[in-house]
Amino acid sequence: MHRYRFLLTRQWVVLTLVAIALIPAMIKLGFWQEHRYQERSARNQLVSDALNADPVPVERLTSPGHTVTSGERYHTVTAKGRFDTGHEVVVRRRTNSDDAIGYHVLTPFVLTDGKVLLVNRGWIPANGTSQSAFPEIPAPPRGELTVTGRLMPDETTAASGIKDLKGLPDRQIMLISSAQEARRLDAQVLGGYIAQTAPEPKGDTPEPIGPPGKEDAPLNYAYMIQWWLFAAGVPVGWWVLVRRELRDRIEAARRPSEDPEPAAV
């Protein structure tokens, strides 16, 4: 075993310690990616189940002051009533499918029992460069009708990353909050809001908000396998380096000395 004494040198001790530290770190990263994979797969299944569920009346899932849960999110709901365009607001800094910046149109929908449902009717472009003027908004259908949409929770800065700025122009907001709208309207507002899917707008405006996309869970699975392969490869790579170092040392010992010949007198 004296041939492996070089492993006690400073260089090889440091290299071995680094390799030993990398193995559990990579295994831990693999388990973290596995957790992310399971989490995203469960979330995708939850979204799929909600989108494929049969429509239900909105008041079966939410009520004034209710917090929409992850299990209720994206469920298709229906509501009967009329739009109140006089209290309509726009939600700033929203993008469409082409990443163009504009507004979401949030219109109160007064139910037959007097409660109010917030309806996000879709996206409209900003009018010119001014952000203070209220944009022109296509009118919704008049009179009593039935709307259908995907139930969504109230927006928060923590979930969206959007700051709830104050001092905005009249009838403009940053985040959709049923509690804030209840105070503004002085009415009983159902918790959350809906992203309208029917009836479809005339002239394709406001532009309807598309369904949520699936999170890339398979990518986390690939990362999980990758980290565990790295962990398995560390000792293999360490041993390859050891064998290479040993071979180089043996070959160096076998080479004849190359002492210079004495000079002729």
Rank of each mutant, 00 (worst) to 15 (best):
H35Y: 12
R36C: 07
R36E: 03
R36S: 09
R36L: 15
Q38D: 13
S41R: 14
A42Q: 14
Q45Y: 05
L46D: 11
L46C: 08
S48A: 15
S48T: 07
V56R: 03
P57C: 06
V58Y: 03
V58C: 03
E59S: 10
L61T: 09
L61A: 02
L61N: 02
L61S: 11
S63T: 07
S63Y: 11
S63F: 12
P64I: 11
R73F: 01
V77R: 06
T78Q: 06
K80D: 10
F83Q: 07
F83A: 03
G86V: 15
R92F: 05
R94T: 01
D99L: 14
A100K: 14
G102N: 05
H104W: 15
V105P: 01
L106P: 06
T107M: 12
P108E: 10
V110I: 13
V110E: 06
T112A: 13
D113T: 05
G114S: 11
V116Q: 09
V116G: 07
L117E: 10
L117T: 08
L118N: 02
W123S: 07
I124Y: 01
P125H: 09
G128C: 12
S130Y: 08
Q131N: 15
Q131G: 11
S132I: 15
E136V: 15
E136H: 12
P138D: 07
P138Q: 13
R142H: 12
G143A: 08
L145G: 04
T146R: 02
T146F: 00
V147I: 12
V147K: 02
V147Q: 03
T148G: 02
L151I: 05
L151W: 06
M152T: 04
E155R: 09
